[in-house]
Simulated scan of single mutants.
Amino acid sequence: MSEPTHAEYIAALIDLHRGLPRQGPGDPELTRQLLCRLPTLPAHPRIADLGCGSGAATLLLAKHYGSLVRAVDAAPDFIEELRDKAAAAGLDHLVEAVCTDMATLDWPRASIDLLWSEGAAYNLGFEQALRAWHPIVSTGGVAVVSEMSWFSDTVPDPARRFWESAYPTMGTEQQNIGRAETAGFSVVFTERLPSNAWWEHYYGPLRERMRRPDVAGMNQAVIRETEQEMALFERYSDCYGYTFYILQRP
C-alpha cells in the first residue's frame, strides 16, 4: 500500500482525534495554576485560543475570566465539537469559534490581551508562530504557548531520530526562550507539563480510541506513528515534552 499524501495523513489524524476530550497533551489543573501566575491583565481581557481543537482550554478560559474567547482552528470538525460543548456548558455566549488558518489572522493590531495556544505553534514553527501572532497582542499583553521541547542536550538516538523527522526545528527550552525573545516577547517564566498529564488527559483516551473496532479501517500509517510516539514517550519522557512559555509583549 502506498504512503498517504500529506492531505490524507492530516485527514486521518483529525479522524483519529475526533470526539476525544483533547487533541494534544495538556492538564486543566496546570492551566488553572498558570492563570493564577500570569502578569496582571485587564478585568475583562480580550482572549484568543489559537489551534483550539475541540476547546478544552477555550471553555476553561471562558469560565475563568467570564470574557469572550475567540477560538481558532483550521479543522471544521473540531470547531463544530467546540460549539456543541460550549452550548452544553452554557458558555456559547462567551465563545466565538472561528474555522480559519491561525497563520493568516487579519485581526487588528494589539487586539488581544491574552493569547493562548497549546501544542499548535509547531504547525508554523515556534518562532514563526510567535512572529505572526506578535502584532495582535496588546502592549503588556500575555501569550501562553506550549511547545515541544528538549529537556536535555543529550537525547537517546531513537527519540532524536523520531522527532528530527516529525518536527525538525524542535528546540531546547533555552533555544525556545531565545526564539521568543527574537520574536519580540519577554519571557516571564516557563513550566513543564508533567509526563503523567500526557497519559491521563491525552494518551490514555487516545489509546482507548485506537482499540475501537472502527479504527481498524483507518489509515495505518497514522496508527503506526501514533503508537511509536507513545512508546518513545513512555521510555524517554525525562528527555522531552511540552513546556509552557509564558510571554509578555513589552
Score class of each variant (00 low, 15 high):
M210Y: 08
A159P: 00
P21N: 07
S152R: 09
A166H: 12
P158H: 08
A231G: 10
E208G: 13
Y9T: 14
V142H: 03
T226D: 01
A166I: 15
A110L: 10
G184M: 09
G66F: 12
G125I: 07
F126P: 06
A57T: 13
H17Q: 12
G125C: 10
A159H: 08
I223F: 06
A129P: 00
E229R: 13
E191C: 09
T5R: 08
P4G: 04
T243V: 14
V137C: 11
Y242P: 03
V98N: 15
A103E: 09
E229K: 10
N176E: 07
W163M: 11
V142A: 11
V188C: 11
W116P: 01
R32I: 12
Q220P: 09
W199T: 01
D49C: 03
L115F: 03
P21M: 03
R131K: 14
V144E: 05
P76Y: 14
G19V: 12
E8P: 05
A166E: 11
F162M: 00
D214E: 15
V98S: 11
L82K: 01
F185S: 01
W198S: 00
A110E: 08
D15A: 13
Y202P: 00
F244P: 05
A56P: 01
W133S: 04
T5E: 09
I112H: 07
R37M: 10
G55W: 03
A180G: 04
L60I: 14
L60K: 04
A86R: 05
T40D: 15
E173M: 12
D73A: 02
P250W: 07
M170N: 06
A183V: 07
C99A: 08
A180E: 03
E173H: 10
A197N: 02
A12I: 13
C99N: 06
A110K: 11
S152K: 08
N176V: 10
A121D: 05
Q220T: 15
G140E: 03
G178I: 13
L247T: 00
P135M: 02
L20F: 04
G51F: 05
R70I: 03
R32S: 09
A89S: 08
G204E: 10
V222D: 00
E234V: 12
S117N: 02
E127D: 06
A87H: 14
A88G: 06
E118R: 00
V142P: 09
A132Y: 10
E8K: 11
G178Q: 07
E181C: 12
D157W: 15
E234K: 15
Y122L: 15
R207N: 11
R22L: 13
V144Y: 00
R46P: 12
P39M: 02
S138F: 01
G55A: 08
L38H: 06
A231R: 09
D15F: 07
M1Y: 14
P194A: 02
G140Q: 01
E127F: 00
A74Y: 14
T190Q: 01
P45K: 01
R83I: 04
A11K: 11
A121Y: 01
H17P: 11
L60Q: 12
L247M: 06
V155K: 06
A74W: 14
V69K: 02
C36G: 15
N196C: 13
R224V: 14
A110W: 04
W150S: 00
